[in-house]
Design a protein around this nucleic acid. Sequence first.
DNA 1: TAGGTCTGTTTGTCCTGACATAGCTTGACA
DNA 2: TGTCAAGCTATGTCAGGACAAACAGACCTA
Lengths: 245, 245
Amino acid sequence: MSDLFVDLDRSSPVPLYFQVARQIEQAIEDGKLPPGSRLDNEIHLADRLGLSRPTMRRAIQQLVDKGLLVRKRGVGTQVVHGQVTRPVELTSLHDDLVQHGQAPTTTVLLHEVVGAGDDIATTLTVAPGDRVLHTRRLRFSAGEPLAVLENWLPAAFVDLSAEALVERGLYQLLRSRGVGMRVARQRIGARRGTNEECTLLDERRGSPLLTMERTTHDDSGRAVEFGRHVYRASRYAFEVTLVDR
Amino acid sequence: MSDLFVDLDRSSPVPLYFQVARQIEQAIEDGKLPPGSRLDNEIHLADRLGLSRPTMRRAIQQLVDKGLLVRKRGVGTQVVHGQVTRPVELTSLHDDLVQHGQAPTTTVLLHEVVGAGDDIATTLTVAPGDRVLHTRRLRFSAGEPLAVLENWLPAAFVDLSAEALVERGLYQLLRSRGVGMRVARQRIGARRGTNEECTLLDERRGSPLLTMERTTHDDSGRAVEFGRHVYRASRYAFEVTLVDR
DNA sequence: TAGGTCTGTTTGTCCTGACATAGCTTGACA
DNA sequence: TGTCAAGCTATGTCAGGACAAACAGACCTA
């Protein structure tokens, strides 16, 4: 539609295509672009905003990748029907909770530097026996236990203190060290909790738990973290958006 | 590296960037580009293949999105370390199993046309009371029960026969009708199975099950399917690849 | 030796221009 | 009146060029 106001700041370090995408996304969230409504065609939009067509395309493509828009050649671009759920980004549980207005707290159950076993060495691509940091934490949200987080990190991070982990969450700590996390592979499953896990999580013995194994790689392709987490199924679920291109 | 052979067919309807991406991906799978190895820079690659830089960039970007490559400005493009796991695409369980060499079979437990209740009407964006197809199927793999699949489809598909569902899987059927599925939103959780579910799935009473709710939208943004599935946690898990850009 | 600075490399962003192709509409023709 | 073809519209693909910014390593200085 034409009542789509977009403010562009060409002196900002934020890329133009990103500024545009962000503001269209906002318009969708605010209901200014209701589900099913059609956007102007790329050419007109680009023209109206004083942008080139490739830049405009890139902004739109970003929202298509996010699952907010859908395009069909010869027809146009439309807003997807259905509720507004925000797709999972590459964040940690800590960041997730903070963003949803929660104030997560953490207890460190274990914090030790050990030699890497064969399996951990393989997934972290380090030599067996190399020093790795092994932590186990209990994460609370709204005063209730939510998950047991067990993580292994390669030698470069063995100096991370237990106190820091209580304060800031693993991903925030890594980011503040200049680690640029790019790719994460997750495997999500379920199983009955062990007696210890159920006790920690305040669940009845034998309760079903949601499990997640994750390996995260930085922008050099190196593994920076391997995690084995269990969540209370009664209080947590993963949301994923898949897009076909 | 320079021993990367790429055959281009400019008369093919397959886009050039896709041909390139596919062949680089193949080289990675074949081990010709081992984890951690660096690709030539975009300019040289584009030059060598007789392509423009944008086209070359697009091919590389596609693999970055898939989590196979990682790039860093001023440094270059590298192959991600770690095992080759295929990321989840927008497919159904049936397609997934077939692709892994399994021969899934299906039993239809329920197949009826009913009026949409309020919740189903909302998620499918149809009017309450509209006719929808409601099915419940038991999916086997390698002779063992694997999942109970409950689905609702809007009025346009109420004529899908139970026999067709046994033969071909839901997504294949939809595709053969010209439905272009684009976006799916999934919610993955866990819970204890009901007695009926455990009986169907040949699990002990009260076993933990993996649950998935999914709404799929076509290229017009309309919902074409809502599913509520439960999987045997002992025999199935979801794999997801997240990429940060 | 330790520190910062410069420089080359590589990706990131943005532009203009062109043609191809899929979907829909409209109109001509049988 | 029905059907097929032509044309219009919007997105898809591709080229080539320009400048900006981040990074790593060499170099130079204190």
